[in-house]
């Protein structure tokens, strides 16, 4: 049954297409006609959740969309539930999803029938950094001292991270391979708990995101050793010990030959039209220009790369390849 709204939206899309063809400035060719569901494939309170709810707040505060944006958490099966939900609504332009690394790791580790190619890529909003942290009471000040201590401990050093067979454990695996050491990896449910275990000296190191550990850094409880990015972070404001995010060296320069960044990107339902994708790209460009968004980026020391279209698709495809390689090597694939 074709409802009046669908007819209207199809009509609008056709009209938009005609306008675009006649080389007129493509004004809002398509617009949501009902509330937009913004799916979070993670629980409340995590990094993706905070980002999505900030976006929801920005959209509402600056009136960027005529229809309301509704945020829904679908965290079951390491986010698999959320991905399958969007995959299962082809041609529904009122459903978008924010992703983290579980876009790749969840289907690989659990065997859930899903691949990012099932969805329509919209835009990369930012990349999340990872930093190697140790307790500030410990003597090691550099990556080399830390790795030497880990080697001397003979496989009893404990590394804690969020979840199992997800980004934190993949990084741990990569460190083990790169530096030829062995850690005991202890999964926790969230980044906050991971950081607390480090402060309480229950584990020896973590690979927390910047905003998960920054308050403990400022309190002098933990110490950053290196960042898993290709170049140092751009934020020069002093945070603690007279150091800024920009002063943290890259792990590569410290002899740990690896990089890892986590995608914070947007996808939408399968079979979305170009007009629909363009609408959301425009929306997120407007979100990026707000001061609230810029504050979020600076507070969390995010890598604020924005990508759309073919660039974005290529980046995701490359990232998928990296994940398949790393996870195959670590034996993390679902049997």
């Amino acid at each position: 049954m074709l409802t009046s709204n669908r007819i209207r939206s199809v009509g609008a899309a056709c009209l938009g297409g005609l306008l675009a063809m006649s080389a007129l400035p493509a004004k809002a060719a398509w617009e949501p006609t009902r509330p937009v569901e913004f799916i979070i494939p993670a629980g409340t309170g995590g990094g993706a959740d905070i980002m999505a709810r900030t976006i929801q707040g920005i959209v509402a505060k600056h009136n960027l969309m005529k229809q309301p944006m509704v945020v829904i958490n679908k965290s079951g099966g390491a986010g698999g539930e959320g991905f399958l939900d969007v995959k299962g609504s082809p041609g529904n332009p009122h459903k978008i999803i924010i992703t983290l690394s579980n876009l790749f790791t969840t289907p690989l580790a659990t065997g859930i029938p899903f691949n990012w190619k099932d969805l329509t890529p919209v835009a990369m909003l930012a990349l999340d950094e990872f930093i190697l942290w140790v307790n500030a009471e410990k003597p090691y000040k550099t990556v080399k001292e830390f790795i030497d201590a880990a080697k001397a401990a003979n496989g009893t050093f404990k590394m804690s991270g969020t979840g199992s067979k997800q980004e934190d454990q993949i990084i741990t695996e990569a460190i083990q391979k790169s530096a030829n050491v062995k850690f005991i990896y202890i999964p926790e449910r969230g980044g906050g708990a991971v950081a607390t275990q480090l402060v309480g000296n229950h584990v020896d190191s973590t690979v927390n995101n910047p905003n998960e550990a920054v308050s403990h850094w400022r309190a002098g409880k933990v110490r950053p050793l290196c960042v898993f990015d290709g170049k140092p972070m751009p934020y020069k404001e002093v945070i603690a010990d007279g150091k800024s995010w920009a002063d943290i060296p890259t792990c590569k320069s410290q002899g740990l030959d690896m990089e890892y960044l986590m995608l914070r990107g947007i996808f939408m339902s399968p079979k979305a039209t170009k007009e629909q994708v363009d609408y959301y790209i425009g929306l997120f460009q407007k979100v990026r220009e707000t001061p609230e968004w810029q504050k979020l980026m600076a507070d969390g020391a995010f890598n604020a790369t924005f990508m759309t279209g073919a660039d974005y698709t290529k980046w995701v495809a490359d990232a998928e390849k990296t994940h398949v390689e790393l996870m195959t090597a670590a034996g993390f694939l679902a049997k």
Partner: peptide, 14 residues
């Protein structure tokens, strides 16, 4: 703004 399951009637009403 909590969406609950909706059917054809709600769809028709937009």
């Amino acid at each position: 703004l909590v969406p609950l399951p909706k059917g054809p009637l709600e769809d028709y009403l937009g």
